[in-house]
Write a protein that binds this DNA or RNA. Structure first.
Lengths: 114, 114
DNA sequence: ACCTATTTGTCCGTATGTATG
DNA sequence: CCATACATACGGACAAATAGG
């Protein structure tokens, strides 16, 4: 899966991992149905705790991008890269809004105006 | 806040806590802007780990029901009990679907048909 | 401006449970 | 039965934001 993280970065480790996997789905470097490495394995390769990887998986599961089931592992959902793209854009928008100091309310209003 | 949990129940502790707080918002037993007890405090009163309470808070934050900020604590969001009601119904629907063995796809289709 | 206490945020390690194959 | 792999929960540690003195 080729994931690289920066322990010194400001963004949390689980967010970095989730973001890179999301990116991989958008770019279709991983296709629907494809299986991701077990949390324990990915964790050891990244030199982080298994919980950190599980949390990243959980974020992507909540977004509908991954199907996570115990005993079976983690596979890319069939919703396709289109949704991943949307979510990625949403993340970027929220991050930029935060950088510019927009409140949640202001962002919502901005979106409604658009 | 009057929360009671059952450690022997099948539903996870964090879900029990989140569910009861959600219910309290629906019934307007807690109003918007009202502050919830610190995680550490609620945890000790429920005899669970602080992380478990924080996870419950995080669930409700993701649902837009709570505003959680470090240093300041947790307050009920101003979105009102209407949204809480919707989310509660959604939870009930998903739980019932799971009991009846419906897949995610079947549930979505059922919703679309309705 | 400084210090301290409070409170959440993240991460780690460990233990146990449960579904899958 | 057994190995795999995620799910939950606990405990501890440190960081960062906030509030108050």
């Amino acid at each position: 899966m080729l994931i690289q993280i920066d322990p010194a970065a400001e963004t949390p480790l689980f967010a970095q991992i989730a973001g890179q996997i999301r990116r991989s789905i958008v770019e279709q470097r991983v296709g629907h149905g494809e299986r991701l490495p077990p949390a324990k394995e990915l964790a050891s390769s990244l030199d982080v705790n298994m919980h950190t990887v599980l949390r990243a998986y959980d974020v992507l599961r909540a977004e509908g991008l991954l199907e996570v089931r115990r005993g079976r592992g983690v596979v890319v959902s069939s919703v396709g890269p289109g949704r991943a793209k949307l979510i990625e854009l949403a993340h970027a928008l929220v991050a930029e809004a935060a950088r510019q100091g927009l409140s949640r309310r202001e962002l919502v209003k901005l979106l409604e105006d658009v």
